[in-house]
Design a protein around this nucleic acid. Structure first.
Lengths: 207, 207
DNA sequence: TTGTTTAATTACACTCAGTGCGATATTAAT
DNA sequence: ATTAATATCGCACTGAGTGTAATTAAACAA
């Protein structure tokens, strides 16, 4: 194995290059059409024609129509996990996940978020799949957390902490889009996350 | 309007009675088939035949195949919301949601949970839809919470608290099923919820 | 260069979920 | 008995996704 899968240097070979271009073209044309006509009103035939491939070839690159959208959200999980792994050793889990989401939020362009959200809302089916990607992000964070706090008896707590962070992110995205990006995403997230923490801590006496 | 929609007394009329029987029959036969052959390997034609109706009539009762499963999980949201509404006035939000989930967990038969979970795992698509029902449950809880703590600036915190409770429930269900019901669901949930709260409270100093 | 292997692309035919439309039967209301 | 709703059904259609097998193009070896 000379070249790794994601080697974007010169020696990737013509095949791999074409492959990536094709996949990218499908994604771009697909999103274009989705934004124009809505997800459900766009057929695979239309996407195939726009991307200059046959309908059957589409399924060589994607397993379903949804995957065009999902492929955009994949990667966020890994970004979050990386942020967890590279955070200062002095922090507590709850602080680590907060920082992780904050740093990732900053990297996502605001316009993209709003457009994607509008897209997601055009179809209940897609809305459903999006939730699955949140679960994947949770898992990614959870694994990264467990690598740093490996005591097995702590695993469940870390799982819920991961869930809390992704959940706060999800809600922040919701609010962010409802306000049409009036405030930066990071700010909304911090408000959601911190107010939740405050709420939990408010019942400090014998529960 | 003489009779309310859910009046299960004598005066419901023959029509309503038949209607409910048909819907129930479809659900039961559907679940039977799903458990036998898996969700994806069961066609609507088979369900229709088993329920003694036409394929077309199925869509008079349900809007999709998924809805058979989803209709079973619906109702939990309302149970949770009711539990929130009827909880003692002295409790804090975080305590209220904990109690609500605990009380609802107790009412769900263990065997049902395990069977349903196995079913859900037979299809990624269904798995996705399940997540949507969690979101619905979150909303139900959130609304009930807001009715008790109506200050608008607290809404987001309550939203995240609702999410935390449903999330802990979801994770508890996951663990519960992984252990094949070795421990009661309530116990697993309490462990998940409480350990998360402990984790959040652990960073009590200047965050 | 040529031949060989492997991966990409396509056409065709198929299954199944879901919808639109219109016809017929059944129950309720007057 | 008439009339108005509500249920049930058949038929034909669209669109997603799969299986199969054939064709084309790139990679590699001699």
């Amino acid at each position: 194995m000379k070249n790794s899968e994601h080697d974007s240097k010169a020696s990737v070979g013509l095949r791999e290059r074409k492959r990536r271009e094709t996949k990218k073209r499908i994604t771009e044309k697909g999103i274009d059409l989705f934004l124009q006509k809505g997800f459900d009103n766009t057929t695979l035939d239309e996407i195939a024609v726009a991307a200059g491939i046959s309908r059957r070839t589409f399924f060589y690159y994607f397993t379903s129509k949804d995957e065009i959208l999902l492929s955009l959200q994949s990667g966020i999980g890994e970004m979050l996990a990386d942020a967890v792994r590279t955070s200062p050793a002095s922090l507590l889990p709850i602080e680590v996940v907060r920082d992780a989401v904050v740093s990732v939020c900053k990297t996502i362009p605001t316009n993209d978020m709003i457009e994607m959200d509008r897209l997601m809302r055009t179809s209940p089916g897609v809305q459903a799949r999006k939730q699955v990607s949140y679960v994947q992000q949770e898992s990614a964070i959870h694994e990264a957390l467990r690598a740093r706090w490996p005591e097995p008896e702590r695993s469940t707590a870390l799982r819920v902490v991961a869930m809390l962070s992704v959940g706060a992110m999800r809600i922040a995205a919701e609010i962010f889009n409802r306000e049409k990006g009036a405030r930066p995403m990071v700010e909304v997230f911090e408000e959601a996350f911190d107010s939740a923490v405050r709420e939990v801590r408010s019942g400090e006496r014998r529960a």
